[in-house]
């Protein structure tokens, strides 16, 4: 890895701007996401800033199972983000569909629609878990995990 790529990688790890999207959650996880951005948890320590527009954001914090109605919107928000971009599934419903799995109007977890980089389970997730998940995602960017050997 060249020096410039190393600097760029460093800057990406140190400055993740997030956008928060509710893809059909019951609002429990959304309240916890907002709570984790308050001065009490002070996510700006890690360079995390909440952005209103997908154009500025690097990380999409999506909460809740994907409903059929929100599917197009979720895709559109994801398409509007500039590369490189990451998706974090926040909450059990976002990871697998949770208690809503199998409903006629629910597609399932976020990973049915988008490539997900990190899963944060919990119902609802605590702010501590969200911070831990985001920090682990950033750490995995710095030292990418080795691909599991085939078989």
């Amino acid at each position: 890895m060249g020096a410039i790529q190393r600097i760029v990688q460093w800057s990406r790890v140190k400055s993740p701007w997030v956008i928060h999207f509710n893809s059909g959650a019951c609002n429990g996880c959304d309240i916890e996401i907002v709570a984790s951005l308050t001065p009490r948890y002070d996510l700006e320590r890690f360079g995390v800033l909440l952005k209103g527009t997908p154009r500025h954001a690097d990380v999409l914090l999506a909460s809740g199972p994907v409903t059929r109605q929100i599917e197009d919107r979720l895709l559109r928000i994801y398409e509007q983000m500039a590369e490189p971009k990451f998706v974090v599934a926040v909450g059990t419903c976002a990871c697998t569909g949770g208690v809503f799995q199998g409903l006629y109007n629910v597609k399932g977890g976020i990973d049915r629609i988008l490539p997900v980089s990190a899963y944060i389970p919990g119902c609802p997730v605590t702010p501590n878990a969200i911070i831990d998940g985001v920090v682990k995602l950033l750490a995995s960017l710095e030292n990418p995990p080795k691909k599991a050997s085939a078989g």
Binding site: I7, V8, W10, S11, R12, K14, S15, P39, R40, D42, E44, R45, G47, R55, D58, Q80, A82, E83, P84
Partner: peptide, 27 residues
């Protein structure tokens, strides 16, 4: 941040933001 009783960003934060934005895709 200090007025709000929190730690605030590290000293290199604006630089990291700037480099990251430079390296991102522009739409």
């Amino acid at each position: 941040a200090r007025f709000q009783n929190r730690m605030g960003p590290p000293w290199f934060q604006p630089l990291a933001d700037f480099i990251k934005l430079l390296s991102k895709e522009e739409l």
